[in-house]
Amino acid sequence: MLASIQRRLQEIGISGHVYRYGVVHGIQIYRKLDVEKFRRLIPSYRLKARVAG
């Protein structure tokens, strides 16, 4: 699932990395340009609710 999302994100020009923290797996976008692009392409209520400003 995460690998599929990672592949789809790469198709729209966002690089993400799948990580593992114990039993939890996730996908991480840590480059600022990619995060900004993510927020621009995918306007999310959840991100707006959590990110200050």
């Binding site: 999302i5 729209i12 996908i27 991480q28 995060v35 999310s44 959840r46 991100l47 990110v51």
Partner: peptide, 20 residues
């Protein structure tokens, strides 16, 4: 459709906030 799929889905959570 994939952008809409990710929008507000619970798969994007606090991790992105921390990385910001």
């Amino acid at each position: 459709d994939f952008k809409k799929f990710l929008q507000d889905s619970s798969m994007q959570k606090a991790r992105i906030q921390i990385d910001l």
